[in-house]
Design a binder for these strands. Structure first.
Lengths: 238, 238
DNA sequence: CGCTCATTTGAGGAACTTCAAGGTCAGTGG
DNA sequence: CCACTGACCTTGAAGTTCCTCAAATGAGCG
């Protein structure tokens, strides 16, 4: 189960629900890049925010993404694409500590708030030229991109599994990514999850019901708060 | 090795058919990292090869991947995973000029030769520490990783489409990636393509037949050589 | 309470898979 | 030159999984 753990350390280790003030977030963001004072000065000149968005707000659309890279401070961000026939696919969810929009510009994805959220905005060209001069910055970006690539590849693998396995794996991964709390408070809607997993909400709902009947999870008061009763079993669903 | 000549136009601008000796490939690889002589010296100390593999050879498996990063010189490499029930998923194909194995170590993917292929091996820890000191190296890796992430995200999007659309998009992308030659000589087997697209070979075959009946492509003499008669139409299949 | 939105459940249909057979092609040996 | 072989691709018919459409239930909020 080597691949069980690779979500467990989003490269920042703070709990996203606790962070609110501008000072905290900015300090944290800077810390990722090290203690070098001149560098932090340059960085803070490039950044703006945190900016607050409400659920379903569009943060950046297609061309806009070119100008800024974003850093999630709180909440959940989704990057998605709607094709001509109206189907929406969610490519990725971003949690606090994640960079958003570094590559998405190439695919013309829409960046949206999946929950109420706060983001730092960083001028892309500034960050790029900083990375061209400063090894530390380049390596922070490289690490972030490498982690995101690993997640995208897991996502590809997941799409070849059955609906039930997709749901089980998603819930397990989310629980780990959110810090393995007692309950899994699912931050995004079932529709978002379904669009991420390439299922309909009906199939997702039926899959979750199956998992509950199998004793692997329990819907504690409602659908959005889950108890993962048998985490090991969840990872073995197929 | 006459049947190797259809991989001749990778998206890096060297013609692989001209590259055979160690000297040429090493020179090209080094060129990616710039003209700095000491850097190139350090790099060449880290690398080994090119090493030749035959079709279906396993190049690196699970833990092995940790030690080396690879660079494709000729042929096609696949990274894949076989799950307990025996299903194989191909996560990515790598063509000449691509780095392989930078992130795959995290997912315990198996790196295999999809065709006869030649690879450079680069000591991972050496490259990592080089990237920590040298901005140019860090940025080459960042660019490569960013491009691979963009491809992985496209792959995720593709998995939400119909079988016919997946086949059409795959063929179109491959044609572009191989340099838009008159004919598309498909280098990998249908089984490999099916495992990449999350389909069975039967469904893939039926989809290709549908595309042919629609006049979008033609199987010129056999299944492995295609003529893309209506490239624009191919991209509009849904 | 009564509204709205989100989730769940059911029945029928479409898309893809499975299983099984047939066809094509390149290489091999008679 | 031809038949034989094995790997690979194609085609057909039956079976599963998931989707679509429709309705019911549940949760949140004024």
């Amino acid at each position: 189960m080597a691949n069980l753990d690779f979500y467990s350390t989003p490269f920042v280790d703070f709990n996203y629900t606790k962070i609110f003030g501008t000072a905290d977030t900015v300090a944290h963001f800077a810390r990722v890049f090290g203690e070098d004072a001149p560098l932090q000065g340059t960085l803070s000149a490039l950044q703006r925010g945190p900016v607050r968005f409400y659920r379903d707000n569009v943060i950046a659309l297609d061309e806009d993404v070119v100008d800024y890279v974003m850093f999630v401070v709180s909440g959940v961000v989704r990057s998605c694409k709607i094709c001509k026939n109206g189907n929406r696919s969610i490519v990725s969810f971003y949690l606090p500590g994640d960079f958003v929009g570094w590559v998405d510009a190439k695919l013309a994805l829409s960046i949206e708030a999946a929950t109420d959220t706060e983001l730092l905005f960083i001028k892309r060209i500034g960050l790029v030229s900083l990375a061209a001069q400063n090894v530390r910055v380049a390596n922070v970006l490289l690490t972030a991109t490498t982690n995101e690539l690993a997640r995208a590849q897991e996502h590809v693998l997941l799409m070849n599994k059955s609906a039930k396995c997709r749901a089980a794996t998603f819930l397990s991964d989310l629980w780990v990514r959110l810090g393995k709390a007692q309950y899994l408070d699912v931050p995004m809607s079932h529709q978002d999850i379904a669009d991420y997993l390439g299922l309909t909400i009906e199939t997702l709902s039926r899959s979750i019901t199956d998992l509950e009947r199998a004793g692997l999870i329990a819907r504690v008061p409602s659908a959005r708060r889950l108890l993962l009763q048998n985490h090991f079993g969840l990872r073995r669903v197929n």
